[in-house]
Write a protein that binds this DNA or RNA. Structure first.
Length: 829
RNA sequence: GCCGCGGUGGCGGAAUUGGUAGACGCGUUGGACUCAAAAUCCAAUAACCGAAAGGUUGUGAGAGUUCGAGUCUCUCCCGCGGCACCA
């Protein structure tokens, strides 16, 4: 047998598998379906990252095991190809993003293929392909027609560096998630998706799926449901009261002042009555100018201005209370106004102390323990100093007190609507057209246009967004124009706005001159439904055939990065739930099971990055050690869900292991029949261990179990053929190439990957004897081999007969003896 | 600050879920092979004491529950991730 030469055998088998279409999912199969999914890569110019390899290998192992267990497996791949880095690269090098993308996906494809992943390449998709984004646009229009898309002037997070608006989810620590640049608030017209309409559904849906708990918890926090009440505080001589949202109506008697967000519209309404309006104005200006980062950096030092001349009435106590504005109250949450209860809220307390406002205690801890001086009791307890509600527990008093002042019980969410516009080039154009004629028409049903021509009615989306007309389905996709200039602008307009020939169009409704929307979608759009397109990737009539969707959905197992839990995962659940409500997809929740891999760090634990020069290129590892070694190493490197540091020496270990497997697989060492009870038992233990470990993603210990088996084989001159072949099958999902080669070297004609998954025999893994540990007072003092079925009595007499034990006992009688069958005996004296 | 995860040899990490702590791998040391080196193979490898037999200590710190704790409970320290004025 030749030396182990991975480069030769790996390329050879990859070609054979591809030719045989071994991994293509057959929709007509009678087998039970299994849908395994990984997050499709963003084809960046840097090429594949070893982190991709970790996730894809893990799911590849799962997919391969499922096939062997008799499932028809769908394990697809594609490209999340729209995005900023490609656009920025294109601008810098003056190459069209389409060409850059082509180059990058070609490279990624080559790299992925060199690793022997069992992807179904016949279903490859690309989000920047017009045939794909036609349907991204189409789904957007469905959202639009359902009233879930709207354009509004809003303060958005503007990244000064990328020159792009960011969703809340994309701002990390006051900085741009992508480039780390400074983010400031800017007022802009933006398309928004009403994800908040799905807040409750997204929350409830979590109960029905099997996600790792961290992902669930993070989503729950992000959605941030809280139950409370709307309370009204009348303002003397004014028509409108000030409405606040509170989760603690039980503290109403302790509310001593109100605070409005600086942007609160009532501030302007009350302008004539506010004696210090110039001061108020100055404060509002200052808080508007603060960037996100400044706001966070100022360490929450409370600031604010009283609206002098304005008072509100506490509806419970009928007392007058001052009204303030402060930026610690957020305009976007609740009503943008709060009742301040300094005795029972730390923020209010801090504010009250700073501005010398009244503090009134109205809730006592249930334990009756006094509250320490200077501390705030924010918990629930027993209501006091609240008239007829005294002595009532908070939980009850909440709703009783709210009722007594005609408060309305409501639920609030922290989730905000999704900023869906990007003022960029390399994304899906938003398929809408602005028509000023139709805008007038919408405002006045008797206007000229509709009387002159007989025209279709406005759709729901068009009514809600007067002037915005949906591009008709037959004209989708709205393709990106082919141009040379795609520089973003400081004014915040999309580069598409400069392409007059593209912008100018005819209104789909009235046929008159109109303008195209020049914003494009964020790059979360294409990935919000790609798992559906895989199911029917070439369909030209619909985004995916419903029957096919019914067959393959939901995704049975989805593995991806923790960094996508509140972005991609939430967005795609939203889209899928929406499509479900439209009866366009068969299941409410797209992903049945979600797991997550840990990051791969550079040597020494630093994050891999080009600037640190510690990026490991999978190509060079494959070249030096082979794909099987890289796969095996990444599985062996550490617990799958935890971050791990790359270590070149580690690859040596698995390479030695593979070389050993190679030597053992020499046909000269394989006997047709070679009885070996001991090795057979170990094999069955290995089957059990590896099978279980794959399910729990404990790949590191699965590999270790294979190593133990191989080490044992190395002690043998000859190996039984059946035994060896079974072991190869167990190892094959991890190292598909070497196992295929060794399988065929033995004369097998079918691929090892078409063989069934071995099942262990429970009888064979039961040991006939075991090492009984003898403890004295909990300390290990002796151990010896005994037969498996040994009873406590037998074990005791054997143990007590031992010289060592006798010596320790020194003649005293044991007080108590604990026997753990199959394990130990503990003698207590 | 709040939520989640974690802390085990020189290193990455195991530990049947309360039952021999350190599987497997790296590294290190010694040996075999070799003219030599590499590769490979064999052996040793938690620390301390001891020539050895053996003993003592040991899973971030401290307490507790238990015949028995890396594992359970409490308090604290440290690291990582997420959220962060959400009323």
């Amino acid at each position: 047998m030749n030396r182990y030469h991975p480069a030769k055998i790996e390329a050879k088998w990859q070609k054979v598998w591809e030719k045989k279409k071994l991994y293509n999912a057959k929709p007509s199969s009678r087998k039970k379906k299994y849908y395994a999914l990984i997050e499709f890569p963003y084809p960046s110019g840097d090429g594949l990252h070893v982190g991709h390899v970790r996730s894809y290998t893990a799911m590849d192992i799962v997919a391969r095991k499922r096939r062997a267990e008799g499932y028809e497996v769908l394990y697809p791949i594609g490209w999340d190809a729209f995005g900023l880095p490609t656009e920025n690269y294109a601008i810098k090098h003056k190459i069209h993003p389409k060409i850059v993308t082509k180059k990058n996906t070609d490279n990624f494809r080559r790299q992925l293929k060199s690793l022997g992943f069992s992807f179904d390449w016949s279903r490859e998709i690309n989000t920047s392909d017009p045939g794909y984004y036609k349907w991204t646009q189409w789904i957007f229009l469905q959202l639009f027609e359902a009233g879930l898309a709207y354009k509004t002037k809003t303060f958005i997070n503007w990244c000064l560096n990328c020159k792009i608006g960011l969703a809340n989810e994309e701002v990390v620590g006051g900085r741009c998630e992508r480039c780390g640049g400074t983010v400031e608030k800017r007022e802009k017209e933006q398309w928004m998706l009403r994800i908040t309409a799905y807040a409750d559904k997204l929350l409830k849906g979590l109960e029905t799926v099997n996600y790792i708990s961290e992902a669930k918890v993070q989503q729950e926090h992000w959605i941030g449901r809280s139950d409370g009440a709307l309370l009204q505080f009348p303002v003397p001589h004014a028509q409108t009261p000030i409405e606040v949202f509170t989760t603690r109506p039980d503290t109403l008697y302790g509310a001593t002042y109100l605070v409005l967000a600086p942007e609160h519209p009532l501030v302007d309404n009350f302008r004539p009555r506010i004696s210090n309006f110039h001061e108020v104005e100055a404060y509002r200006e200052a808080s508007k100018k603060k960037t996100e980062e400044e706001r966070l950096r100022l360490e929450r030092e409370k600031t604010g201005v009283e609206l002098r001349g304005l008072k509100a009435i506490n509806p419970a106590t009928r007392e007058e209370m001052p009204v303030w504005i402060s930026d610690y109250v957020l305009a976007g949450y609740g009503t943008g106004a709060i009742m301040a209860v300094p005795a029972h809220d730390e923020r209010d307390y801090e504010f009250a102390r700073k501005f010398n406002l009244a503090i009134r205690e109205v809730v006592r801890p249930r334990s009756g323990a006094p509250i320490e001086e200077g501390k705030v009791f924010a918990g629930e307890g027993m209501v006091s100093a609240s008239g007829r509600f005294d002595g009532m527990p908070s939980a009850k008093a909440k709703w009783e007190i709210a009722k007594s002042v005609a408060g309305k019980r409501i639920t609030q969410y922290k989730l905000r609507d999704w900023v869906f516009s990007r003022q960029r080039y390399w994304g899906e154009p938003i398929p809408l057209v602005f028509c000023s004629g139709c805008q007038k028409d919408a405002a006045n049903p008797k206007s000229q246009i509709s009387t002159v021509k007989k025209m279709r009615q406005f759709s729901k989306g068009e009514r809600l967004n007067p002037g915005w007309i949906a591009v008709s389905e037959k004209n989708l996709p709205v393709e990106l124009p082919n141009v040379k200039e795609y520089m973003p602008t400081d004014t915040g307009e999309s580069p598409l706005a400069n392409i007059t020939s593209w912008v100018g169009t005819k209104c789909p409704r009235c046929g008159l001159k109109a303008r195209r929307e020049t914003d494009v979608m964020p790059n979360w759009a294409g990935s919000s439904w790609y798992f559906l397109r895989y199911i029917d990737p070439k369909n030209k009539k619909t985004f995916a055939d419903f029957k096919q969707l019914k067959h393959w959905m939901p995704v049975d197992w989805y593995n991806g990065g923790m960094e996508h839990t509140v972005l991609h995962l939430l967005y795609s659940r939203f889209w899928n739930q929406f499509l479900y409500d439209q009866k366009l997809v068969p299941v409410r929740e797209p992903y049945q099971k979600r797991t997550s891999h840990g990051l791969i760090m550079g040597e020494g634990g630093m994050k891999m990055s080009k600037s640190k020069g510690n990026v490991v290129n999978p190509d060079s590892v494959v070249k030096d050690f082979g794909a099987d070694a890289l796969r095996l190493y990444e599985m062996f490197i550490g617990p799958f869900n935890q971050p791990v540091a790359w270590d070149v020496h580690g690859i040596l270990g698995v390479t030695r292991f593979l070389e050993r497997v190679w030597m053992l697989g020499d046909p000269k060492r394989i006997a047709k029949k070679h009885a070996d009870k001991e090795l057979e038992a170990l094999l069955h233990k290995t089957i059990k261990k590896v099978s279980q470990d794959i399910e729990s993603m404990a790949f590191n210990t699965a590999v270790s179990a294979c190593m133990v088996f191989v080490n044992e084989c190395s002690k043998r001159e000859m190996l039984d053929r059946a035994l060896w072949q079974t072991f190869l099958r167990v190892l094959s999902p991890f190292a598909p190439h070497i196992t295929e080669e060794l399988w065929q070297v033995l004369g097998n004609k079918k691929s090892i990957h078409e063989e069934l998954w071995p099942v262990y025999n429970p009888k064979l893994i039961r040991d006939e004897e075991f090492v009984l540990v003898v403890q004295i007072n909990g300390k290990v003092r002796d151990s010896f081999t005994v037969p498996s079925g040994i009873t406590q009595k037998e074990a005791e007499s054997l143990a007590l007969a031992r010289e060592k034990i006798q010596a320790f006992l020194g003649g005293s009688q044991p007080k108590k003896i604990i026997f753990v069958p199959g394990r130990l005996l503990n003698i207590v004296f």
